[in-house]
Write a protein that binds this DNA or RNA. Structure first.
Lengths: 342, 342
DNA sequence: ACGGTATGAGCGAACGTTCGTCCAACCGGG
DNA sequence: CCCGGTTGGACGAACGTTCGCTCATACCGT
């Protein structure tokens, strides 16, 4: 194990040139160097196993080609998909990604952002709903570094990318309405999350369009987890036994919903129709395959990076770029309402 | 938006001291400085919003307090869980994490590792089965930087952490045997993966112990995806219609298995018993809840960074630390064999 | 043969820190 | 009144690059 990096000076020495000349051919742009000298330097570098020290480079260039990603616990598949896509997109543009995953609760958001800043990332992507109300994070993001957020930032000033959540709710709900359902419940994310409220608005929009009522006891709050979905389902069933359809705010919660419905002896889709949203990779392998509104998760991650990179480059980016479109994917979990008992 | 970092020199100037003195109180250890001077420096730093430049620090200290993580597409939940745990553990120890997610196929492994090295990470964690046979990656890991791997590394020389895969296969299979099953199939990961072969060995161990045969047509190769699981299931059903139990090599594939079985009209667990492994968070919310062998994913990630950190600190770490134990979690997807048709 | 222009390479400075050494002033004791 | 020790702080050097400027040589056309 060598375990000692060789510097450009050693390469230069071996090639018999000044280290600045070596620098030019090894990295710099304008190579005003003869072909043979260049060759000599290159082979010397190769023989020595030279790897440029980007730390030193960053110091002089004052940019690190690194972006920071603060994400909620990426055990949440939707977040993971966006994160991975973001990292790959960043790498495609020559940037690396420094990640920080919030602990549950998300109280360490500011701490994470601070270390990212101290490491002089060129920009930060915030992909963590938990920090939606974190004014300290918002302040850091505004003050120190270009940033793009996947969720609202208190006080604004940070471009927001994402999909059309309201449309998501509307689409899901009107699909159920179109199927003949009238007693349509919804199992939401945490109420204080913007995305939840938007989807809820979409749900209400659809009901209103169809002149249906939206009684409060048809909505139950979940927490994005299967367990929360299951609990909310039990609550809904108890409060409104005649419910025939549910719009669930995430595929992962839908797993819990399916599970709870199964245990309660209600068949899906015959007794209860389910439409959820996200369209995570295995939505089609649930039992039954999930009808869901596809949210462009990976695309969101990529767009965030592209926007951030433009912002880093000094371009003026809109604070509210167009929302990404969503699309209904029809599978088996939602069927027409059975009117057998009329 | 200020967007310009203030350096320690500006802080020093404002406090009326040399920048080296400011450095001492702001970061350095032995503060041979009067209380009032220190106070003055601190408030100056605060007023100016000073954030140390860790890039510069890294340059002189020749360590970055950063570890690199090369992971397969963390859309795979198991990988995601380990990654997140690893990052949090690293942060707990004051380290940041630079990630790189392989593209499908994993051909860019060496490229990722190389950029990690150029960024002078203090160590690297390899969490990507795809690079199991990548000799170039192996070479880089051995030569340049302390590393820990979650999968085999060709040529060795890199500590390996992980759980007992063979025991996993054995445990799952003997649970099925204990339930009275004799025609037990298995749906594996890709054959060329070490983990697959180990679990397969465990499966065979269990069959042998019970003096059961292991006909080749009872094993079908999957690819870790639900889709692959579903296809393998159809194949198995076709080849051996009398199969009554299946050991699946991952919970995610099990989703596809469950789905395919459902479509084929086979009930789980009455007609076919399923045991899989991993115990991902929503295994208990599948229909039916999955009996599975719990693999300590998060623990693995944490152990990897602990080991790596020790290795970075210069400690000699064993190349084969003890395998983490696995444990059977009994839920509903595996029931005793029904002998109705005897 | 001469001035002008490429061409090839050297060299000083700077990036923002940390680390160790050096120095001045002060203090107390004999 | 002088001397040794302590305290508080300054200062040079180094980390490994990039960047821009300078300079020597060779080549070209007239």
């Amino acid at each position: 194990m060598a375990r000692r990096y060789v510097s450009i000076k050693e390469v230069a020495a071996r090639a018999g040139v000044s280290f600045q000349t070596a620098s030019k051919v090894l990295n710099g742009g304008d190579v005003r160097v003869s072909a043979e000298t260049a060759e000599r330097i290159l082979t010397a570098a190769d023989e020595l196993g030279y790897r440029p020290n980007t730390i030193a480079r960053s110091l002089v260039q004052r940019t690190t080609a690194t972006i920071g990603l603060v994400a909620s616990d990426a055990t949440d598949i939707a977040i993971a998909i966006a994160s991975v896509a973001a990292e790959q997109e960043a790498r495609r543009h020559g940037h690396s990604v420094l990640v920080g995953h919030l602990r549950v609760g998300g109280a360490d958001g500011a701490a994470i952002v601070r270390t990212l800043i101290e490491r002089r990332v060129d920009g930060i992507i915030a992909a963590a709903p938990e920090i939606e109300e974190d004014t300290e994070v918002a302040h850091l993001l505004r003050k120190y570094v270009p940033a793009v957020s996947l969720q609202a930032v208190p006080g604004g000033g940070v471009p927001l990318v994402g999909s059309n959540h309201r449309e998501t709710g509307r689409l899901a709900t009107s699909h159920l309405i179109g199927l003949g359902h009238t007693a349509i419940g919804t199992i939401t994310g945490p109420f204080r999350r913007r995305v939840t409220r938007s989807r809820l608005h979409g749900y209400e929009d659809a009901l209103r369009e169809a002149r249906l009522e939206a009684p409060e006891d048809l909505v139950a709050e979940g927490d994005w987890s299967p367990k929360g979905g299951a609990e909310a389902t039990r609550l809904l069933l108890e409060r409104s036994p005649d419910i025939s359809a549910i719009f669930v705010h995430s595929d992962i919660m839908a797993m819990g919903v399916l599970s709870a419905l199964f245990r309660a002896g209600r068949r899906v889709p015959q007794d209860v129709a389910i439409v959820s949203c996200d369209d995570i990779p295995f939505a089609e392998f649930m039992t039954p395959p999930l009808t869901t509104v596809r949210v462009p998760l990976a695309e969101t991650g990529r767009q965030a990076v592209d926007l951030l990179l433009r912002s880093i480059a000094g371009e003026q980016v809109p604070e509210k770029p167009p929302l990404l479109p969503v699309e209904l994917v029809v599978r088996a979990s939602a069927a027409p309402r059975e009117r057998t008992n009329e």
